[in-house]
Design a protein around this nucleic acid. Structure first.
Length: 874
RNA sequence: GCGGACGUGGCGAAACCGGUAGACGCAGCGGACUUAAAAUCCGCUUUUGGCAACGAAGUGCGGGUUCGAGUCCCGCCGUCCGCACCA
């Protein structure tokens, strides 16, 4: 017979236990007043975009959150672990254009499929709280919040230069432009001026920066990325009075001082020129009568903004014919240029060039023959001979050639220069931010409508509360050209809420990042019909204690959410004094897989390829296949393993186990068939051990006859328990997996008595349960335990068994390991020395040597420092 | 260019505070069971010398601190990530 009766049957066990958990309702978060003193714990994975199907790569993120949720629940917390759908977005609208499917239908169908798939994983999720951002039940409250923000000045309208994606035909936030291309379409982004809705993120710039320091349970990397993104620079605004202008220049430009921003006011005496952005108002004004300047502007506008373009672009400029007076020495006149390397979007769109202290300024000065002098003396340099020719000195030093600043170190010189500028009215100490307000208008259908009405008489008017939600029209036309809302024949027409005259609805929708900036708060009260959420519930559950998601959201989503919680707090929706939505953040690595390409250049999926040592072959045709790079699982490269297929063959537990083993959670893990086999073998070994034990006689009196082997096994079990407990707390899942392998290997090999073995199995199964909940539950039952393991409290390790009473201590001689001795735990130095020096191996190595020093690290190591006897030293 | 992280067997990795380098898994090799194969089980598996006991070397490279360095410091080399004409 090939039929093996003792095999664990995941196909029967997994659905059975999922049904049992569901029937018992153990994954439901308990209302605060019924929590019976249990502390709350909110664990959340970044919610998915419903794009189609789930593959095993997606499973890693949810499994990590699930391990934490199950663990915390067993540890006595009132756990909130919800799931929802980030359901607005371009793919749905593109599907509508490509296939004629309505975005709403397409999205709901995907959600249905993906929810079924997620359920297969056996996740500890409170599905009663499920939400989808594309439903009016959700976005109604978002519109409400938008109006509250607007009322508070946190949302406003402004004509702004925007990044226009010509393929997706919409505006992109700066954060969504990567190397000058749209983050989704990859199209080269154009600049346009449009009337835009903005969120005033900059209002919280200082707090968003400062509060990063308090986010101790966030990865340093993410905090650093946000710090850089916010980009705080201290410096000064400096006003340069006009000395002379071309006769054609009139009005303000001819007399108002030019404002520049600098972080190095200490180098003002090294100034050589001013440079304006090509699209600075002054440049434009001069271009109006100088064709050469107009041509220069056009040339600069034609240059790309991609990395390669910038690298190759030469630093070029043009003299505008304007002369300004030096702010600290009015007799000194300085020329004003327009230059292609000055950005209109940062600072004041104008700089002063101090060539000795800035490489770009130096290159520019050399190119146009502008004179300059060094003003910062490098440490140790000679003030008489020090000179700058083609390499600028950008570090701190001592100021010289600078009048009243002479002799001051750079930091002090900056402060002194600012003081002088303020005193003479030629400047002001200031802080410059890289962070800009968030443009949230999108010219798209499949997003949350912005609840505003444009009235010719009354201006832009909020939609009254009783008219919310402003819902999307179902009968829009999706032909890929422009915004379906703007083109809809009737939807945009609405009476003005103020004067009742015919007016037009706002046809822009909100950036989908708005939807995901507050969903974690909605989860605290997802059925609320009158408010986004109840304040008391949000105050109870927030902040999220553990957030799990991809590093790709290090700036966008996480920064927007931090803005949103502050804005919600200041509009009275919640308390959250810190303003921080996520107390702990973990950024998990991806699941990768080999890629396969046929001779014809077509990507092949793993299921279509027969992988051999020597290479790979297309199963259908027998043709050889090129094995490509190991990459993140993605639909486009087809290197995905479908979750349904996998669960049918191996079970959810094997998938869960695999994605957590081998690699640290923050690093990528490569999915391999052989790795899967290893996980599968382990499942069967665990089950075999439990089943074999279940049939063994159980002694009535546990304390009676514990063998030496039994004690040893009990020690391993309790140490595993203590270790895995720490590992889960510390997000070291791969280490926990290794420990569990060790425990079950030990059980298999041990000659322990039945009682000790039973205890080890019981502990092992319990500790295994966050990782492989179905198998653990089946084993729990087979071991004769009552109730559901998923509802059982986490066991406590016996400290006496975790602690070791005797220790094998390595003995080093001159730093090399030469032997081992057995000592009592905590033995004093003299006792250990005596044992070590009496040891035969040690004696052998010490023959003819004189012991000079003995270092004992208690219970860790002993190092004997020895030298040849009678040596000359000392 | 600026900022950051990392570099350990054939592979993924472990070593948490400076204290036995390579746990655990994969692959490989040998064996048991089998008519045979699969599955399963047992053993070996950093390199190198040796029949062995037992040595030697070894955590990208070169230095340093220390009784002791994968871990700390300095300088290189390499890989990856973020930002980028940011004044």
């Amino acid at each position: 017979m090939t039929q093996d009766n003792t095999r664990y049957n995941h196909r029967a066990a997994e659905p059975k236990w999922r049904a049992a958990w569901s029937a018992a309702g153990i994954f439901k978060a308990v209302a605060p007043d019924k929590a019976a003193g249990k502390p709350k714990y909110y664990v959340l994975e970044m919610f998915p975009y419903p794009s189609g199907r789930i593959h095993v790569g997606h499973a890693r993120n949810y499994t990590m959150g699930d391990v934490v949720a199950r663990f915390k629940r067993a540890r006595g917390y009132n756990v909130l672990h919800p799931m929802g759908w980030d359901a607005f977005g371009l793919p749905a609208e593109n599907a509508a254009i490509d296939r004629g499917a309505h975005p709403f239908t397409w999205t709901l169908e995907n959600i249905a499929v993906m929810k079924k798939q997620l359920e297969l994983l056996g996740l500890d999720i409170d599905w009663d709280r499920e939400l989808a951002t594309c439903t009016p039940e959700y976005y109604k409250h978002q519109q409400k919040m938008f109006l509250a923000f607007w009322d508070k000045g946190l949302a406003y309208r402004r004509k702004a230069k925007v990044n226009w994606d010509p393929v997706d035909q919409t505006v992109l936030a700066n954060e969504q432009v990567i190397d000058g291309r749209g983050w989704r379409s990859g199209a080269v982004v154009e600049t346009r001026e449009l009337e835009q809705w903005m969120f005033k993120v900059t209002q919280y710039a200082d707090d968003l920066l400062e509060a990063l320091k308090g986010l101790e349970r966030w990865p340093d990397k993410v905090r650093l990325m946000q710090t850089n993104w916010i980009g705080k620079s201290r410096g000064a605004k400096v006003w340069w009075d006009i000395a002379s202008v071309p006769p054609q220049l009139t009005g303000g430009h001819a007399k108002d001082p030019i404002e520049v921003f600098t972080t190095r006011p200490d180098t003002l005496f090294g100034a050589s020129f001013l440079a304006m952005a090509p699209d600075h108002p002054l440049t434009k004004a001069i271009a109006a009568f100088r064709p050469d300047v107009a041509a220069f502007m056009a040339e600069c506008a034609g240059l790309g903004t991609s990395e390669a373009d910038i690298e190759q672009a030469e630093k070029i400029g043009i003299d505008l014919g304007v002369r300004v007076k030096h702010p600290l020495d009015p007799s000194w006149e300085i020329p004003v240029y327009a230059a292609n390397f000055v950005l209109s979007t940062y600072g004041t769109g104008a700089i002063f060039g101090s060539p000795a202290g800035d490489q770009r300024d130096l290159d520019f000065a050399n190119k146009y023959g502008l004179s300059f002098k060094p003003v910062v003396l490098p440490p140790g340099a000679d003030p008489v001979t020090h000179a700058i020719t083609d390499v600028a000195f950008t570090d701190d030093g001592v100021t010289y050639n600078s009048g009243f600043l002479d002799g001051l170190p750079t930091r002090e010189a900056i402060a002194a220069a600012i003081a002088k500028l303020e005193e003479t009215g030629h400047g002001k100490g200031t802080v410059q931010w890289r962070l800009r307000d968030w443009g949230v208008s999108r010219q798209r259908y499949w997003g949350c409508p912005i609840p505003a009405i444009h009235c010719q008489a009354c201006g832009v008017v909020p939609v009254p509360d009783d008219q919310l939600p402003v819902t999307l029209p179902e009968d829009a036309v999706f032909d890929g050209a422009g915004n379906p809302l703007a083109k809809h024949p009737t939807w945009k027409h609405a009476p003005c809420p103020h004067c009742a005259r015919p007016a037009l609805r706002e046809t822009d929708t909100l950036d989908t990042f708005v939807d995901s900036s507050w969903y974690f708060a909605r989860f605290t009260d997802p059925q609320n019909k009158t408010a986004p959420f109840d304040k008391a519930l949000a105050d109870y559950w927030l902040p999220v204690d553990q957030y799990v998601g991809g590093i790709e959201h290090a700036v966008l989503h996480l920064l927007y959410s931090r803005f949103f919680t502050r804005a919600m707090r200041d509009c009275g929706f919640l308390s959250l004094p810190s303003g921080e939505p996520f107390d702990g953040l973990f950024t998990q690595g991806m699941v990768t897989h080999e890629t396969y390409k046929s001779a014809a250049g077509k990507w092949l999926g793993p299921e279509e390829v027969d992988r051999r040592d020597s290479g790979a072959v297309d199963i259908a045709t027998g043709a050889p296949v090129t094995v490509g790079a190991i990459e993140k699982m993605s639909k486009s490269k087809r290197n995905v393993v479908d979750l349904d297929d996998f669960v049918r063959e191996y079970g959810a537990d094997v998938a869960r186990w695999f994605v957590l083993s081998d690699s640290p959670p923050e690093r990528d893990v490569e999915w391999t068939a052989s790795g899967v086999e290893g996980a599968w073998r382990f499942v069967q070994r665990v089950w075999a051990a439990v089943e074999a034990h279940g049939k063994a006689p159980k002694p009535k009196d546990p304390a009676g006859d514990i063998s030496a082997d039994g004690l040893a096994l009990r020690q391993i079990a309790h140490r595993t328990l203590a270790g895995v407990t720490d590992d889960i707390e510390g997000f070291r899942f791969n280490r926990a997996v290794a420990r569990l392998y060790e425990l079950f290997n030990a059980v298999r090999k041990s000659e322990a008595d039945a009682w000790s073995r039973g205890e080890a199995l019981r502990i092992g199964v319990q500790v295994l349960s966050p990782f492989m909940p179905h198998l653990a539950e089946e084993c729990w039952q087979a071991l004769g335990q009552d109730g559901l393991l998923a509802a059982a409290p986490w066991p406590t390790a016996d400290r006496a068994l975790v602690a070791q009473d005797t220790i094998t201590l390595p003995v080093q001689i001159n730093g090399k390991k030469r032997g081992e001795i057995t000592i009592a735990k905590g033995a004093a130095q003299d006792a250990v020395e005596a044992i070590a020096l009496a040891d035969e191996t040690v004696k052998g190595f010490l023959k003819g040597q004189k012991v000079r020093k003995i270092i004992l690290v208690p219970d860790r190591i002993l190092n004997i420092v020895a030298a040849p006897a009678g040596g000359a030293a000392e």
